[in-house]
Design a binder for these strands. Structure first.
Length: 378
RNA sequence: GGGUAGGUGCCCGAGUGGCUAAAGGGGGCAGACUGUAAAUCUGUUAGCUUACGCUUACGAUGGUUCGAAUCCAUCUCUACCCA
């Protein structure tokens, strides 16, 4: 089953006996990554408000995301190539996964026009017109030099009609073949395929089967967590993950609440990413073992306790809720930084704990304990 | 002492006869955020009531009018200018 891609080797160390969860290591050009893993998102060559040192020392992250579309627009992939690649440009010597720009096809709404050839965008910055094809996305990601690249795909909105999703999924598969064909730097960059098919099981199955024929070193589940109810999310997640090759890494795109991460791992997913921890942080909310905490709320004015007594992060070791509340009330940027540190560490640590639970073969117990504390009724 | 401009809801501020419980900011209180068009967005912010609604409200008092934050008179306070 070894394919010719040298950039990635995936090793599965252990499987949980009662769930689909697995413990693994991604061997990548910029070091090993233990899985299941949560990957912080740094769209514009920066995980907002965090330095790479903080990501290493405080968050303890080994892989982050960045974005093709954004970096293509600014500063331009040629400039990043000139800088010596994205790692050097942003001073991050661990792994980087780049999204293909496919999600922008979804999120930019009426700023774009999709054809078989590719997608015509109007820049969200200045309105200028741009065209990204599967080949162009590969060219950009090659120039960026990320360790894992993503195929250019279309992420269908929720809800969407069957006929639309079917056509969209088929095009995504054709685009995947074109990506695969164009991408030559397989020794240094692993290219993942993305399963689409919305919330229709037969389409998910078809998408997975066709992509597997193309033989990618890893597979992502896209088009999920786009506003659907949790039951539908779980249904499609549990259905889709096992369709993907057992021995290859599975990446669930765009998932970042603690419960979704746990459910994803249990379904057999190895990698997740999300903007949620950093965005929530900038907007004043913290994820904690005891549920969500909004630091803007007046109940923290005199609260000189720490954010989360079970957290080992820099913020929780050094600061009180009263202080962080004050920082947000006064619009001080340090508030966003401290909460970003905490939220990212919280999710990275959640995955560390989950990995330990897999080692100890007690994933379901771990989930129950976590949910009980967090306040989930499930 | 004289003159001028003003006093609007927690604050700033629009409003010059009915569509005004009163625009818009700010502040306060809450909510949302899931491959980042997000340090963003949404709701709410006189009192009573589940609600219909009722009661108090635009410095004070009195008046004109079917009807006044808006017009008139007096008083009062503030700012600036002149003595």
């Amino acid at each position: 089953m070894e394919n010719k891609d040298k950039a990635l080797k995936f090793e599965i160390l252990k499987k949980d006996s009662k769930t689909g969860a697995r413990l693994g290591i991604l061997h990548l050009p910029h070091g090993d990554v233990e899985t299941p893993v949560f990957m912080p998102v740094g769209t514009q060559a920066t995980v907002k408000s965090m330095t790479p040192e903080e990501l290493k020392d405080n968050v303890k992250s080994h892989i982050i995301l960045s974005n093709t579309y954004h970096l293509y627009l600014r500063p331009g992939h040629e400039l990043i190539k000139e800088a010596g690649g994205l790692h050097k440009f942003m001073n991050w010597d661990r792994n980087i996964l780049t999204d293909s720009g496919g999600f922008q096809v979804f999120s930019l709404g009426d700023l774009r026009k999709i054809t078989e050839e590719g997608v015509e965008f109007r820049s969200h910055i200045d309105g200028s017109k741009h065209f990204i094809s599967p080949e162009k996305s590969m060219e950009i990601q090659n120039a960026l030099g990320s360790d894992i690249m993503m195929c250019f795909d279309e992420c269908a909105p929720y809800p969407s009609k069957y006929e639309y999703v079917e056509k969209s999924m088929q095009m995504t598969t054709r685009w995947a073949a074109r990506c695969k064909k164009y991408h030559k730097n397989t020794n240094n960059q692993a290219l993942f395929g993305i399963v689409q098919g919305g919330f229709y099981k037969d389409l998910r199955k078809k998408s997975a089967e066709d992509l597997i024929k193309l033989d990618f070193p890893g597979y992502a589940i896209g088009g999920i967590s786009v506003g659907e109810p949790k039951e539908e999310f779980l249904e499609i997640l549990k259905y889709t993950a096992p369709l993907l090759p057992e021995k290859k890494p599975r990446y669930l795109m765009g998932v970042g609440t603690p419960d979704y991460l746990i459910e994803a791992a249990i379904a057999g997913v190895d990698m997740c990413d999300c903007v949620l921890p950093t965005r929530m942080a900038r907007n004043g909310s913290a994820m904690t073992h005891y549920g969500k905490v909004n630091l803007f709320n007046a109940c923290h004015i005199h609260d000189f306790t720490t954010l989360d007594k079970d957290c080992d992060c820099y913020t929780c070791k050094n600061y009180t809720k009263a202080y962080i509340h004050h920082l947000f009330k006064t619009n001080e940027i340090l508030g966003a930084r401290l909460l970003s540190t905490h939220n990212l560490r919280f999710l990275v640590k959640l995955m560390e704990d989950l990995r330990q639970a897999i080692k100890d073969d007690r994933v379901l117990e771990f989930r129950e304990e976590f949910y009980k504390k967090y306040g989930y009724t499930k």
